[in-house]
Amino acid sequence: MKKFLFLALLSLSSKSFAHEFSSQLGNDISSTDYIYISCDNLTDKVHIEISGNKSASSPIISAQIFKDFQAKNITTQGTSSVDFQGGGGVYNMTVNKNKIGVVNYALVYHCEDSNGEHTETDLNQLQDQ
């Protein structure tokens, strides 16, 4: 029963809460994580916040969000965020860095309608390097 309640709450969460994801980029400079973020048809934009190591000597982490014929870059040594207005559908995202070295990063992401309300959001990692 407790498990059922937990799962029921979890199923409601996608419309209620921001979504979080964390991963690590390997040592090689070509290392790239590739992620799909799927937003339902009520979506106006996706909001993405990325956090990494704040040390100035650490690699700068960058992410590129692209959909249809548009692309945006977000770059951080700390925390940065970006809104990408592309309606419903799949937003592609690549995450990479400008130096060799292993780095951890975290994402907060959610799809939003034109009133800023969260819409159905899903993430799928296609490539983990």
Partner: peptide, 15 residues
Amino acid sequence: LSAQVVSGIKAKNTI
């Protein structure tokens, strides 16, 4: 500058 090449479900980064 950095560049990413993406095709299908694959992506690579280069500076």
